[in-house]
Write a protein that binds this DNA or RNA. Structure first.
Length: 422
DNA sequence: TCTGGGGTCCTAGGACCC
DNA sequence: TCTGGGGTCCTAGGACCC
């Protein structure tokens, strides 16, 4: 039987900020979402001050006077630290599958030492190399490893490591303390269903018959039940070579009713998504555009657009997708609304090597397009992003999001490398 | 005044084919 | 004039994740 560990970073974004600014170690730190909208990470101290996950900033702004330290999200920095952690983990496990920016599954099958001790070893080594605090949960399946990891967060006595591998009594005890809604794969809807069935904790859920659950609900939740019983039902490796879809979206800094500012934001999203697409050496054949007014302002009238169009041939050429964006936008834009968010989705993605040319495809045109995009990407890589951009993109960036307390790019920009003065 | 930005998987149902 | 049923592919939308 496989031994699976889940290793996740405690308060990932807040911890990342602390690594490069020792003065805020041990202090209440909150990281804000894009546009400085709401809390997406809190240090333990900030949690104690009462800041909630996803809480809008304006609701806890007053805590700054009481010493709360606020940072704007700096995703390139977090991604850098995350890669570093994965490369450390790769030296400690037989296989590592990164699951999210702050979590990786580890295959520890065949580790001969005590699993709890080995978990502690992982924590120590990761901390020594990156200064990032991690928790480790060990069990027979991914869902149980997630549960064990949950326990490390709620019971400090375990010092960040919980193994329930082949310990049925310990597993049962732990699951009975875990609310059913905390189980990986059980969201709000299912929690409501289960609670109405008097299933309140993970242990009760694990006692159900997967087959009955499948009939009553669906295969996804049936797999979750099986996993809680120690039966591996979630695939170990997901193919992550190319994404199924690529999304670029953001709130607009200041809500706007200006057609040009709005389309400028859309242009930026299209070129951003296509850049990601090319980086994966892939092409997409399906394009969706969406933009909308605020979901929260009930005083203003709402308007929301979400439209999709296919291309006759899959491509990675930004200009092709911009044409579709224009088409949808021209047909759907309505005056008199203050727009708050825009974005696009590229889907039907395939590797470029498998690209099919259609009957009317003009080889010369394809080559030309490839050349143009290569030049575009190369210039932007060399001289900074947006050196070359598309006509629709606004020069003064009127649609740019707020990011008032952003830390430096300590790991990806020569000018931002920390300096030591003696 | 101010409320994130990515992703995945599954299913139902329509379009189309033979 | 009568007008089937099985299969596949695709998309929209829902639920979930971090």
């Amino acid at each position: 039987m496989k031994v699976i560990a889940l290793c996740d970073v405690n308060n990932c974004f807040a911890s990342s900020e602390q690594v490069f600014d020792p003065l805020i170690m041990g202090k209440p730190v909150v990281v804000l979402s894009n546009n400085d909208g709401c809390a997406i990470a809190r240090s333990a101290e900030a949690k104690r001050m009462g800041v909630k996950m996803g809480q809008p900033f304006f609701q806890f702004q007053h805590l700054v006077k009481q010493g709360l330290i606020v940072r704007s999200a700096n995703f390139p920095l977090y991604a850098n630290l995350s890669e570093r952690i994965v490369s450390v983990l790769e030296t400690l496990a037989f296989d590592v599958v990164p699951y999210s920016i702050d979590e990786s599954f580890l295959d520890l099958t065949g580790i001969s030492s005590d699993l709890t001790a080995y978990g502690q070893y992982i924590r120590n080594i990761v901390y020594r190399h990156t200064r990032m605090p991690v928790g480790v949960g060990v069990a027979e399946t991914k869902t149980l490893a997630k549960a064990a990891n949950w326990a490390t967060k709620h019971f400090p006595a375990f010092k960040g490591v919980v193994s329930i591998y082949q310990q049925p009594e310990r597993r049962a005890k732990m699951l009975s303390m875990m609310p059913v809604g905390e189980v990986w794969g059980v969201g709000k809807q299912m929690t409501r269903h289960f609670e109405s069935m008097k299933i309140k904790n993970a242990y009760q859920l694990s006692q159900m018959d997967p087959e009955k659950v499948r009939k009553q609900f669906n295969v996804v939740i049936a797999r979750t039940v099986a996993e809680l019983q120690g039966i591996e039902s979630v695939e170990w490796e997901s193919d992550i070579d190319t994404n199924r879809q690529i999304i670029s979206s953001k709130s607009i800094g200041t809500k706007t009713d200006d057609k040009h500012i709005l389309f400028s934001a859309i242009t930026r999203h299209v070129s951003n998504a296509c850049k990601k697409l090319r980086k994966q050496n892939a092409v997409a054949q399906y394009f969706s555009l969406f933009y909308r007014t605020s979901r929260f302002n009930t005083a203003e009238s709402e308007y929301s657009v979400s439209e999709s169009l296919p291309l006759s041939t899959a491509t990675d050429d930004t200009r092709e997708f911009l044409k579709l964006a224009h088409k949808i936008f021209d047909e759907t834009y309505r005056k008199g609304f203050r727009y708050a968010k825009a974005g696009c989705v590229l889907s039907s993605i395939t590797p470029k090597s498998q690209q099919q040319s259609d009957l009317f495809c003009n080889d010369e045109k394809t080559k030309q397009s490839e050349k143009t995009m290569n030049v575009l990407d190369a210039l932007n890589a060399k001289f900074g992003k947006s050196t070359i951009r598309f006509g629709g993109e606004d020069l003064n960036c009127a649609s740019e999001a707020k990011s008032q307390w952003r830390s430096q790019n300590y790991m990806s920009d020569w000018a931002d490398i920390p300096k030591l003065s003696v």
